[in-house]
């Protein structure tokens, strides 16, 4: 990982962006392909025929004003929308080329491969250890206490939380600060070793320092995971992501490499949004 601190100006956005967020290699083979995905709550269309690639080992940001369907789109990628009554989904979502909406698809296995972190930190009211161990235990992924210990430690290290909590693993997770709780939730999601990590405004409930830690974490995580982050914070999208999708009223307005979308948007509505003329 290159850790230079050189920055690039995004003139439209009035923020400086670390160039670690630039697109690395020519990208060809998407990890996830969204094809004319439509999500409806009853009659209301929340996601309207969105088509979008999500590239391997890169961070894709979904931005747009509140209520434009960002969460609905994100939750379609691990079929979390299935848990809400009255949701209808059409179109295809290919994970490694396999449609996750085909009738025979194993949703349980899917959710293990596509992990999720929510807007509000939601650790279980259990110990720190039990939180991280939860997914491993229910999925029967470990066979001994030693293995469990090792996987819990690895996940906590990946989430940059190990040093802070290693002496109090049996304490309640609710005693952690908000930022620590959110990193615990990331560790909990990482413990089952997903391939894709979905993050729904993971820092919107956190203070700036915790936000910075989460963003820093994302840079290291993208070596191993494909990350999709929803944010209504454009600066954040500009800082962390490689590709950005801009949604408006459920429809995809623009999908482009992040530097391009923020410096030279193809659609006038994108420009209007990122310069703060609406939203």
């Amino acid at each position: 990982m290159n850790s230079t601190t050189s920055t690039r100006d995004f003139p439209l956005l009035k923020v400086q962006v670390s160039d670690r967020a630039s697109v690395a290699a020519p990208v060809t083979d998407p990890k996830v392909t969204v094809e004319s995905l439509t999500v409806r709550y009853g009659r209301r269309v929340a996601v309207d025929a969105v088509t979008l690639p999500i590239y391997r080992n890169l961070i894709t940001a979904i931005i747009g004003p509140s209520g434009c369907g960002k969460s609905s789109l994100l939750r379609a990628l691990n079929r979390m929308n299935d848990t809400i009554a009255g949701v209808q989904t059409s179109g295809r979502v290919l994970l490694d080329g396999q449609d996750i909406y085909t009738p025979g698809c194993d949703v349980i296995a899917l959710r293990r491969r596509v992990g999720m972190v929510f807007q509000q930190p939601n650790p279980f009211p259990k110990s720190i250890y039990d939180n991280v161990a939860f997914g491993l235990r229910i999925n029967g992924l470990v066979h001994s206490k030693a293995e469990l210990d090792e996987r819990v430690e690895r996940a906590l290290r990946q989430a940059a939380l190990w040093d802070e909590v290693k002496d109090r693993l049996d304490r309640s997770a609710l005693q952690l600060s908000g930022g620590e709780q959110q990193r615990l939730c990331i560790a909990r999601a990482l413990a089952v070793e997903p391939e894709v990590l979905l993050m729904d405004e993971p820092a919107s409930a956190l203070d700036p320092i915790s936000t910075a830690k989460i963003e820093e974490l994302m840079f290291t995580l993208k070596q191993h995971y494909t990350i999709v982050i929803v944010t209504h914070n454009m600066q954040q999208a500009a800082r962390v992501s490689d590709f950005t999708a801009f949604l408006l009223s459920g429809a995809l307005v623009e999908f482009n490499p992040t530097p391009q979308l923020f410096t030279n948007p193809a659609d006038p509505r994108t420009e209007a949004y990122i310069t703060g003329r609406f939203g």
Binding site: F118, G135, C185
Partner: peptide, 27 residues
């Protein structure tokens, strides 16, 4: 029991029954 606990459990690949007995009921 907050819905967010159920969601966290489902998102980790838990079945509904696992969610009920390991997350909701203890709460």
């Amino acid at each position: 029991v907050p819905q967010s606990y159920r969601e966290a459990s489902y998102a980790l690949g838990a079945t509904r029954t696992q969610t009920v007995f390991r997350v909701v009921l203890p709460q």
